[in-house]
């Protein structure tokens, strides 16, 4: 009963917020509604009893990914509306709608036939985090490790891209200004 009320509340709110994200022309509205939608999605995990995944959703998507987006958004003037350039709105609408439909059908098909079965059912007595850990370190060990290597590669690439003058303090050394001006001239 409570779960159903919570589910419908969360779904309506999430869909509305993500609609605002897509429709709004204001950077600030889009960003806020996307972050709020991410918070509400973690609510679905809590309803399903997957506490651990819910909190991971909070920490990773709300705390880290969205914060990085918003960091990028600071390059825009947040108080003005953005003029979007869309040359083929009908094409975008058709392709987007089709892919969404295909995605929904892919995920809904096994549910509809009610043949879905958990290979690794939850153990309520062991707790959620343990279940996730056991599956990650047995069945999905290789994808897990590959993802770790991929993140390491991304991290090293990020450091190399950003760290060209890492040992120079920009606030202390005035010769850095000349350097920046030179690079600007070269461009």
């Amino acid at each position: 009963m409570y779960e159903q009320i919570a589910f419908y509340l969360f779904s309506v709110l999430t869909v509305t917020l993500f609609l605002i994200t897509v429709m709004s022309k204001n950077v600030l509205y889009a960003m806020t509604s996307l972050a709020a939608g991410m918070v509400l999605i973690s609510g679905f995990f809590f309803i399903l009893g997957a506490d651990f995944l819910g909190v991971v959703q909070l920490i990773v998507y709300v705390g880290a990914v969205m914060a990085l987006y918003s960091f990028a958004m600071m390059f825009f003037d947040a108080t003005r509306n953005i003029k979007e350039k869309s040359t083929h709105p009908a094409l975008v609408f058709g392709l987007g709608g089709m892919s969404a439909l295909v995605l929904v059908m892919m995920f809904a098909a096994p549910l509809y036939s009610e043949k879905i079965q958990a290979f690794y059912p939850m153990h309520p007595e062991a707790g959620n985090a343990q279940d996730v850990g056991i599956v990650l370190f047995t069945k999905y060990l290789i994808p897990f490790e590959v993802a770790a290597v991929m993140l390491l590669v991304a991290m090293i690439a990020g450091i190399i891209l950003a760290g060209k003058k890492m040992d120079v303090s920009f606030t202390q050394d005035l010769s850095v200004d000349d350097e920046i001006m030179k690079q600007k001239d070269a461009k």
Partner: peptide, 8 residues
């Protein structure tokens, strides 16, 4: 996680 969300 909640304190992380507080950064907004």
């Amino acid at each position: 996680g909640m304190m992380a969300a507080g950064l907004y």
